[in-house]
């Protein structure tokens, strides 16, 4: 169970809704994996187009909580205005705040992110800041009112997994009561399980499921992985060591040499 601004979520797998082969497969993946939170976005509406309504009908029928993003925003102003428009359209104070700083890696801009988060928290948004795993940035985001941290695993869509486990462990140790959601770069279920084993509270991913050969089966595999990783974290894993420790008792062993 993870608590996002007073909303408790049982399934720590959050799923993006883009790049699926079809809307039907998106819906099936969400349902069969038991996903409770999906990300959505906003784009220019063409005159006379019903695309936005059709997509919204699909999401509404799934009965899930939506987390609107500010994807594609490179400035504070763009991100803030997009968040405000998203609040009106999706009728939620939640926003996955993205302020992109680099076009090649889509790395979050920490300076713009903090400025935008400050503005939005003051306006009673419940901000999920898409961030690097920088400890000082995290402290500043919490200071301005963020009650969720959303560090990247690696660049969006790269499938590289967790580039900086040390950074994630540091965030976990520093922010005991703040939910940490690893977002972006997850490629396979073991990456997601690893994030959860480190003590993260949830994982958000999109491409790894949407572009898999079988998105429905992959969504379920990720759902199993995050639950297993969480259970392992709560069960306290052993410490890693460089040398062997025999698991079979040696006392009483027959002397045969």
């Amino acid at each position: 169970m993870v608590d996002f601004y007073g909303t408790c979520i049982k399934n720590p797998l959050l799923l993006g809704t883009a790049r699926y082969p079809s809307p039907a497969l998106l819906a099936k993946a969400v349902r069969e994996a038991g996903v409770e939170v999906v990300t959505v976005s906003l784009r220019r509406e063409s005159v006379g187009s019903a695309d936005g309504n059709q997509f919204w009908d699909l999401i509404r029928d799934l009965g899930v909580k939506v987390l609107p993003n500010t994807a594609g925003c490179f400035s504070v102003g763009e991100a803030v205005t997009t968040a405000q428009m998203a609040r009106e359209v999706f009728e939620t104070d939640w926003v996955k705040l993205e302020v992109v700083g680099n076009r090649d890696t889509l790395q979050p801009d920490p300076f713009g992110l903090l400025e935008a988060a400050t503005i939005l928290c003051r306006d009673n948004f419940q901000v999920f800041p898409y961030m690097t795993e920088d400890l000082v940035l995290a402290e500043k985001l919490v200071e301005v009112g963020c009650r969720v941290l959303m560090p990247w695993g690696s660049p969006i869509g790269s499938g590289r997994g967790l580039n900086n486990e040390y950074g994630l462990r540091t965030l976990r140790a520093r922010f005991e009561g703040i939910p940490i959601v690893v977002d972006a770069g997850i490629g396979v279920p073991s990456h997601a399980a690893r994030a959860m084993e480190l003590g993260c509270d949830a994982v958000l991913l999109n491409t790894a499921v949407a572009r898999a050969g079988d998105p429905v089966a992959m969504a379920s595999a990720f759902s199993d992985a995050v639950r297993a990783g969480r259970a392992a974290y709560l069960a306290t894993p052993i410490e890693m060591s460089d040398m062997a420790t025999p698991s079979t008792p040696v006392i009483g062993k027959a002397f045969l040499s």
Partner: peptide, 10 residues
Amino acid sequence: VEVVSPIEGG
């Protein structure tokens, strides 16, 4: 003027 509507997002 910008007019936007819901779409898929990651």
